[in-house]
Design a protein around this nucleic acid. Structure first.
Lengths: 185, 185
DNA sequence: ACGGTAAAGCTAAGTACATTAGCTTTACGG
DNA sequence: CCGTAAAGCTAATGTACTTAGCTTTACCGT
C-alpha cells in the first residue's frame, strides 16, 4: 500500500475544495478523506479533528480574503479605496459563497485565527488611512464598512433579496451611505 | 404508558427552547425528544423530519420577529419609525441570538415560509410609508435597512466586534447613514 | 548498504444521530 | 362497548466522528 503523502496543508486544501463544491455544511471528515484517497481516521495524523479542521479552513479563507482585498485597494486611497474595498468584499462573497460561509465572524477571539484576522483588519484600516480619522473614529468607520458589506453580501449569497430590483443599485446606495458618514474628500 | 399529548406546535415549542438554551447547532431530534419526554422516532408522527422541523422553527421565529417589530413601529412614522425599527432589529438579535440564527435569510423562496416572510417585509415597508417613495425606491431603502441591521446585529451576536469602542455609537452612525439616503423629513 | 524508528497509514470498535419499519396501545366516536 | 386511527414504542440501518491499537513505509545515521 503506497503512501498518500498527505500533510496538514493538503488536508485543508481538500477541505476547501469540498466546501467550494458542495457547501459549508458538506464539510465532513469522510468527504475530505475520500477526496484525499485515505481512510477517515488517517486524517487524524494531520488534523486534531473536525473542529480543528474548521478552524484551519477558516484561517485559510481569511488569508485568502485579505490577499484579495489587498489587491483591490493597492494604489488607491480615500473614497476610491473605500469604494473598491466594498466592491471587492461583495465580489469575493459572490465568487466563493460557501467559502465565505466557512469564515469565522470573530477571528480576533481565537489565537489560531488572530493573525489572519489581523491582516484583514489592517487592509480595512489602510483603506481609511487617507481620511486622517482619530483611532477611535477609524474603528467606527471600519465597523460600518464591515457591517454593510457583510450584511449585504451574506443576504445576497443566501438568496435573501427576492425581488427583481437591481442589486447593484441597492449596493451603490449603501456605499454612498457609508461614504456619507466619512469626512469630505 | 400514558400518552404525551404532543402536537406539531408543541414539538416546535420544544425546538425553540432547545435552540434558545443551547444554540442553533444543538437542534437535534434527540434533544427535542428528550425535552418532550418521548422517544426520538415518535417525533415523526408530528414532523416529517429534522429538515421540516427546521423550516417550521424558522417560520415561527419570523412570525415572532414580525410581531416584535410591529410593536416597535406602531404609532410611529418617518424617521422615528425607521430609527425604532433599526433599534428593534438589533435588540431582538441581542435578546435571542440563537433564535435569530435559526431564521432563514430567504423566506420568500420557500412556500412554507412566504407568509411569515411577507409579514416581516410589510412591517419594513410600513415604516417607510411616510416617505412616499416610489415602489422601487421603497424596495431599495428596505434592503438598505435590512442589510445594515442584519450585518451589524449578526456580527455583534457572533462576537465579531473585538475592540472596546462603544457599539451603540457605531450603530447610531450606521442608522444616520441609512437615514441620509432617505429624503429629508 | 542497512537497521532502527517515528510518522503515516490501516482496521476495528464505540458513540451519537436521523431515519424507516413494524408493532402495541391508547383514546375516542359510533 | 367495540373498532379504528393516531400516538407511542422497540428494533434495525446508515452515516459520521472519534479512539485504540496494529502494520508498514520511508528516512536517518552509521
Amino acid at each position: 500500500m503506497p503512501r498518500a503523502g498527505l500533510s496538514t496543508t493538503a488536508v485543508v486544501d481538500a477541505a476547501l475544495a469540498v466546501v467550494d463544491e458542495h457547501g459549508a455544511e458538506a464539510l465532513t471528515l469522510a468527504a475530505v478523506a475520500q477526496r484525499t484517497g485515505v481512510a477517515t481516521p488517517s486524517l487524524y495524523k494531520h488534523v486534531a479533528g473536525l473542529g480543528e479542521l474548521r478552524t484551519l479552513l477558516g484561517s485559510r479563507v481569511l488569508e485568502d480574503m485579505a490577499e484579495y482585498f489587498t489587491r483591490a485597494v493597492l494604489g488607491r486611497g480615500g473614497e476610491d479605496a473605500v469604494r473598491s474595498l466594498m466592491h471587492a468584499y461583495r465580489a469575493y462573497v459572490k465568487e466563493h459563497p460557501a467559502r465565505y460561509a466557512a469564515a469565522p465572524l470573530d477571528p480576533l477571539h481565537d489565537p489560531a485565527l488572530a493573525s489572519a484576522g489581523g491582516k484583514l483588519m489592517e487592509v480595512v484600516l489602510g483603506a481609511l488611512r487617507a481620511y486622517d480619522l482619530s483611532p477611535s473614529d477609524t474603528i467606527h468607520a471600519a465597523r460600518c464598512m464591515r457591517a454593510v458589506a457583510h450584511g449585504f453580501a451574506s443576504l445576497e449569497a443566501g438568496g435573501g433579496f427576492g425581488l427583481p430590483e437591481d442589486l447593484d443599485h441597492t449596493y451603490d446606495q449603501l456605499i454612498a451611505a457609508v461614504l456619507g458618514t466619512l469626512p469630505r474628500h
